[in-house]
Computed example of a mutant assay.
Amino acid sequence: MYPEEIVIPMKEQLTFNGFEDLTTAEKVDEAMKKEGTTLVMVNSVCGCAAGAARPGVLLSLTGEKAPKNLTTVFAGFDLDAVKRVREYLMPFPPSSPAVALFKDGELVHMLERHHIEGHSAQAIAENLKQAYAEFV
């Protein structure tokens, strides 16, 4: 498990921008029951999370459409919450970072680590904006 002093600033990059920090399995279940669209970012300490995933997710929210509910869990820190999110992400294998879009509790779009690693924040944002245009 990662030390809190390392994780908190990475969490805050999202929570200071309106993301709900899901720290327990129960909070994940509550978030998945919400109507409308829910974005879930599986946050991570890796470089591709810092350089592309978090900035890309935030940039994706600047378009005409955006998910109603913004949520995040942190791999290697919020262990029970991440385990529960990964159940909702089936059949996709565990991946961090990862970004998933749900509509009324159904998974409709998924970015796994291999969609993030080596891609720019702008490319990730455009991918997500296309999903928002279709599902939001």
Rank of each mutant, 00 (worst) to 15 (best):
D78C: 04
S120N: 07
Y88E: 15
A123G: 11
V42R: 02
L70E: 14
P97E: 14
E35N: 13
P97W: 03
Q130W: 12
Y2A: 07
E30V: 05
V99S: 01
P93D: 15
A133Y: 10
V28N: 04
S95P: 09
G51R: 00
R54H: 12
N43S: 00
P3M: 11
M41F: 13
S44N: 05
K34Y: 10
D21N: 12
E117D: 14
V45C: 08
I6Q: 14
G18V: 10
G18I: 08
R84L: 03
E87A: 10
T62N: 09
A121Q: 01
E117S: 07
A121L: 04
M90T: 15
R84G: 06
E30F: 10
E4M: 07
F77H: 12
M110G: 00
R54N: 14
Y132L: 00
D21A: 12
F102E: 15
T23L: 01
K34R: 13
N69V: 03
S120Y: 02
E35T: 13
F102L: 04
A53Y: 11
K83S: 12
F19M: 00
A66E: 14
L39F: 04
K34M: 11
L22W: 09
Q13L: 03
N17R: 09
G18C: 03
E106Y: 09
A49F: 00
A98S: 07
V40I: 10
M41N: 13
D29T: 11
A50G: 06
L107T: 04
D78M: 02
N127L: 13
T38M: 00
A123C: 06
A25K: 02
N69Q: 08
D21L: 03
M41Q: 15
A121Y: 05
Q13M: 08
V73E: 14
E4W: 12
K33S: 08
A123V: 15
E112C: 03
R113W: 02
G47V: 05
I8W: 12
K34L: 11
F102S: 09
E30R: 09
T15L: 05
K33D: 13
L111F: 06
V85S: 09
K33E: 13
K129N: 06
N127G: 13
F77M: 07
E64F: 08
N17K: 04
F74R: 00
R113V: 03
R54Y: 12
G51V: 03
R84H: 04
E106A: 09
T15S: 02
G36I: 01
L79Q: 15
N69W: 00
H119F: 12
E4Y: 13
E26M: 01
F102C: 00
D78Q: 09
R54W: 09
D104H: 06
G36E: 11
E134R: 07
N69T: 14
